[in-house]
Design a protein around this nucleic acid. Structure first.
Lengths: 209, 209, 209, 209
DNA sequence: CATGAATGAGACTTCATTCAT
DNA sequence: GATGAATGAAGTCTCATTCAT
């Protein structure tokens, strides 16, 4: 659980940092979603967060720090909610449940996901590397699940195609994040999840035609 | 084929406009890919294109016009290369061929695609609407193909799931655009296309277990 | 000995004021020497002095007050150490001794002197006037000494050149303050003093060729 | 005549650069003299120079560049005017003439000198090194003159004291720069030069009592 | 048509100072 | 008396766009 990159603050009170950063992240996500990272000014973020520009800069060093905090925050939420999937025996049911949880999470945090995927490239090299690492961990979770299922003799898929399949699951989630506005006309979230589970797993599950 | 948005130029000579814009699109794509739209300056684009900042502004009105030209250019290419699939009889073979052509195109124009997906949100409302419309047309082409196949009695899929399947095909293409750097370690383009065809169509084709 | 300028403090306890100000002067001298007055922040001074920014402002009113305290402190030291030269009979030996004491003091308080000469221009008009007055008093001490020597019939110099000669003695001291880093390669302090006494007084002392 | 440090400009026309920089240097010297480098804003400099802030930054990269240009400009002037002293035979008359020229120059460029000595410490390491090097060259010119005089058998001074004597000449010049306001009450420039020549050279010239 | 110097609004960031705790 | 979080004026610098040559 080593923190790779720390955002420096000149304020000492840790709980206050926590509180202010939460305010600032919420404000930033909203604004980044509307106008994008570059078109949003630090003043706007401060104002939307409810404090002055001076106060904003007591809790970060640069504007980019805010973007990093947004991205970091999302992954922490994601991992917190996904990692509860214990995956003890590696059943297909558990895999389906993981997909459901993941897509539900994406739906809950739609704004944040869109912002992260659209803007994370604006991060500096080290911050970007950190975010990409987190993203690969996400794919790795599903790879691991698929592999356990495979070892349980539950999948017909080739072992070497597991990475692609895992990416597929993640990408399908991004699809909901990016095109909810288009897809929601036709599917509810529940329907989307059901259809996705079917399409993604269809044909790779033993005993299912 | 009504042009929704025209980029104004104060130069009259059409062939010169064509030539200069091609230069500027090529320069811009390279720069946008490296540094993103917002971090790229108009001066840099002019210099990379081989003319002065003053000349650049003879052929466009705003910086955003350049981004629009990049996006517009991609769709013109796409449509030119995909639309040749007349899809007369709606066979599975033709569907597979369309997927192959589409993914090959994405591979050819990788830089442009990445730029478009990353930056198109920076377009003004009307230009963005135009680009989204073009993208939906892309999905519509595959929907149409799937529907023809369906009517040909070639698909087991539900008719109402055709839009989702079409989106799926397009998204899978984006996956190659965005993650070629990661995927290429494991798959060649040909292999990726083959695997994708299999995963995307698997289970929805009649007569295939 | 009327105090021209008082630095206000909201703290009552005089000995505490004394203590805190000593701390802050020491910290400030060090920082001003390294980075200059303008590049040093009040926060840095407070931290280096060992207390909080809030406490710092209990003992001063503005940042400039700190600079004034530094300058004032130097002159207090100077006067304390130089004025002990009672100069009762106005001998050449006493003049030489005064030069030695003065230059030794400059060597001891090198940092403070450099800071004062570099930064005193940043003082407000009234504070600057006070510092300049103190400096002129410094020159006046040597003028007085030279004049006594002159009246003692010990100098060949013109009486009207005494002010210039006095300035010369002071300036030569500044030379050691500013260029000790260069001069120290060639001369020890003792050697510098000896050479200076020789050059400064050479030719103006009766009975010396 | 190798230029150690170049200030970058995005304007290509060399003669225009020359012209604009001259304007900007003149404006800056005036303002730096009045308020110091740090209290002067780039906007003020641009305005005083007669163009916009944007134009100012077409000819420099950072505010510090302006200070560097000011310092560089002074030394170029100084060297241009001093180097005409051919010093062919190394006579005392020529040495005196050099001192006269140097002090006259300082008087002419009083504002610039004060600014340079007060503010050059605000330069970055490399720019500061360049300025210090130029200053040492100034001392070296006088050292060279003194040494030639010495070899001509014209000086009674010890050879090892030549560096100190050269520094002395330079420092005495700075005295006029810094304290003209005080000294001018008593001496005209001509008188100051005469007295300085006398005091500086007195006793080190053979055949003069 | 081509050029590139000029413009200035506006962005990010700093930091002296205050004041409630 | 001590603390340190909050403030916002002000500074430096960028860059899209214009227009005279």
């Amino acid at each position: 659980m080593a923190k790779k990159k720390e955002v420096q603050s000149s304020v000492k009170d840790e709980s206050l940092i926590e509180k202010r950063r939460t305010q600032m992240i919420q404000a930033a996500v909203q604004l980044f979603k509307e106008k994008g990272f570059h078109r949003t000014t630090t003043r706007e973020i401060a104002q939307a967060a409810g404090f002055s520009i001076g106060t904003l800069y007591e809790y970060i060093r640069t504007k980019e720090d805010i973007l990093f905090l947004v991205c970091d925050n999302i992954y922490n939420e994601v991992q917190a909610r996904i990692s509860t999937l214990a995956m003890e025996r590696g059943t297909i049911a558990e895999l389906k449940s993981a997909i459901e949880r993941y897509y539900t999470l994406i739906d809950d945090m739609n704004d944040e996901f869109v912002v992260m995927y659209q803007e994370s490239k604006s991060l500096q090299k080290d911050a970007l590397a950190y975010v990409l690492k987190k993203e690969l961990e996400m794919v790795a979770i599903f790879e691991e699940m698929l592999r356990t299922c495979y070892d349980n003799d539950s999948l017909t898929i080739e072992r070497e195609d597991i990475p692609l399949a895992a990416q597929h699951i993640v990408i399908q989630g991004q699809m909901w994040a990016f095109r909810r506005w288009a897809l929601a006309k036709q599917y509810s979230l529940a329907q989307f999840i059901e259809r996705s589970q079917q399409q993604l797993l269809q044909g790779m599950i033993k005993g299912v035609s």
